[in-house]
């Protein structure tokens, strides 16, 4: 006797609720996998039930086959749904205990010295204006450091800079200004350079270190003037210290520039008022101004030393102390900290 198609169909159809019941018990992906094998595997319950199809009355087979296919896709659906449900639950469970505040696996914190930071910032400003950056020797001849800069031996101007000597005619450069001489000897105008570097003076106390850093600037061209010197330095100071900074030029004296000037910026601590809440300002000593750089028109005598025609060319130069700018910019009170290299100091400048 042929098996009853109705019995077979009901057997196949009942697989769906049974499977759902089993899945309800399953609490892990492997248990779901076991259920999948039990129902949909090669020797699973659907396969077993379907093996009965062959014995059915051929007329009943299509209907039973259709039902079997439906059940198969239904089983696949419920298994997948349960699996997805469980996977999602597992994921959120695992990250519930995730601690995002644990330290990262960071490399050592590197840092650049504040002198380097300021030097690069200033050089970048002048590079943007079209200046080249040049460097030169720190052990320098007396001729480049003094004589060619219009500072003859036994001139009182030599007192302005206490000098370290290596030998009678060789010094540790007292300023970056010999780079003016070297630049003008090396190239014909037009010239526009800045020269950063270390300089040395025989002076050591609270406000002086025997080595410090300067940046020299020089522009030589056929038509330039004090007005352009003022324009460039005013722009550079505002870029460096902020657009609101007030700037004043005060006549001064340097043997290698004439006219010469010193540039003051308004004190950033007291905003140029000279006092903070009634107490005298310690940064500008109540003047409201802070001296920031020296500058001037290249002295015609200097052109004589480097073979440039002073009637055809004019030029201007400036020199600025890097530590001084760094102290103002970052609010560093003690100059000597720059050369102690305490990691707690260095670490404040990334």
């Amino acid at each position: 006797m042929a098996p009853d198609a109705a019995v077979l169909i009901s057997e196949i159809t009942s697989l769906v609720p049974e499977c759902e019941a089993s899945l309800g018990q399953a609490s892990s992906l492997s248990e779901i996998e076991a259920v999948r094998v039990a129902y949909l595997g090669r020797k699973g319950r659907l396969a077993q039930a379907m093996s009965g199809l062959a014995g059915l009355d051929p007329a009943a087979r299509p209907e039973a086959g259709r039902v079997a296919n439906e059940v198969k896709s239904r089983l696949t659906e419920v298994l997948d749904a349960r699996q997805a449900e469980l996977a999602k639950a597992g994921e959120s469970g695992a990250f519930a205990r995730f601690d995002p505040t644990l330290p990262g696996r960071a490399p050592w914190p590197g840092s650049l010295h504040p002198v380097t930071l300021v030097m690069e910032e200033i050089c970048a400003i002048f590079k943007g204006l079209g200046f080249d950056i040049v460097t030169g020797p720190e052990v320098e001849t007396d001729w480049h450091n003094f004589e060619a800069l219009n500072i003859p031996p036994d001139h009182p101007a030599r007192d302005m800079q206490d000098t370290f000597y290596v030998s009678g005619q060789v010094v540790l450069r007292t300023h970056t200004s010999p780079m003016q001489v070297r630049t003008m000897l090396a190239k014909k105008p037009p010239l526009a350079v800045v020269a950063p570097g270390k300089v040395y003076r025989r002076d050591s106390d609270l406000t002086h270190t025997p080595m410090f850093h300067q940046i020299e600037g020089l522009l030589v061209d056929e038509k330039t003037s004090m007005a352009e010197l003022r324009g460039v330095l005013t722009a550079a100071c505002r870029q460096l210290f902020g657009p609101e900074t007030n700037i004043r030029f005060r006549p001064s004296f340097f043997p290698f520039t004439e006219p010469s000037a010193e540039v003051d910026i308004s004190c950033s601590l007291c905003q140029g008022r000279g006092a903070v809440d009634g107490t005298p300002c310690r940064v500008c000593k109540q003047s409201g101004w802070i001296e920031i750089l020296g500058c001037g028109m290249v002295d015609p005598n200097v052109y004589g030393f480097v073979g440039i025609d002073p009637e055809r060319y004019r030029g201007w130069a400036f020199g600025l102390g890097v530590e001084r700018v760094a102290m103002l910019k970052y609010g560093i009170g003690d100059l000597r900290m720059f050369f102690e290299n305490d990691a707690r100091f260095l670490g404040q400048f990334a």
């Binding site: 079209g130 037009p190 522009l219 061209d221 003022r230 006549p251």
Partner: peptide, 29 residues
């Protein structure tokens, strides 16, 4: 130039107008 400096100094270096240069450079360097 010493006299030029005096004229500038008495006029007021701080009152000289400001201008920006056209920086000419040799790009083949």
């Amino acid at each position: 130039i010493d006299l030029v400096e005096e004229v500038g100094r008495v006029y007021g270096i701080d009152k000289i107008p400001t201008a920006l240069p056209q920086v000419t450079r040799d790009l083949t360097v």
